[in-house]
Amino acid sequence: TSVQTRGCLLKEVHLNVTDLGLGYRTKEELIFRYCSGPCVEAETNYDKILNNLTHNKKLDKDTPSRTCCRPIAFDDDLSFLDDNVVYHTLKKHSARKCGCV
């Protein structure tokens, strides 16, 4: 279950594949899309209660996860050749759609 909100948006940045930090050696580039923004609007009573309990230190050391802005669908696979002419395919590497989940 996810809710599309104004705050949580799909953004994009133009990168070299080497910028991804996955260890591939190549001159190929890509458009990387990611999800970013606040998810306040998607919060429910559950989130409010958790917020209050954490604030009042009723949950000891436990800090449960709050609603956050994450991909709910991914871009198509990305294939590229590395410097040794070996093909690689990246799957689920870039967001297509975002949501507060």
């Binding site: 996955l22 260890g23 591939y24 070996v86 690689h88 799957k91």
Partner: peptide
């Protein structure tokens, strides 16, 4: 299965 991260 598919391996996550840089690999061959």
């Amino acid at each position: 299965e598919n391996v996550i991260g840089g690999h061959e």
